[in-house]
Amino acid sequence: MFNAKYIWPGIVLFVVLFTAPFWLNANTKTYVRPEIALPEKGAECIEPRAFMAAEHMQLLDTWRDMALREEKRVYVSSSGKEWAISLQNTCMTCHSNKVDFCDKCHDSNSVDPYCWDCHVEPRGNK
């Protein structure tokens, strides 16, 4: 091959770097679902737990557009109950422990949503 002495090391280096995340993490601990703090009140959430765990980001995304852009600030849940659309005033009234609820799961999944750059955490948190 033309210029093989440059090309082969290049290919090897690329493959090593490209697969680095896999073998760098090969021997680390397995993922453990974090213990998150659920509201003490025992109140129902707006939708069942499994749905909220999987879909809360899409839901919040739709909530934002509905409240802000469509002037619809009431959410009718699958059980027919009505909720005011508000991260701060609805969600975080019950989920008042941001550190042990939101952050714990977000941190262990390496996601860093910037909700709280603007939305104010419940006072109980500091």
């Binding site: 899409q58 469509e70 009431v74 699958s78």
Partner: peptide, 16 residues
């Protein structure tokens, strides 16, 4: 999840 998909999707879940 059965029965819940409408949550984020359909417009009639939202009103003023």
């Amino acid at each position: 999840l059965p029965g819940m998909a409408r949550a984020a999707g359909l417009k009639d879940s939202y009103r003023s």
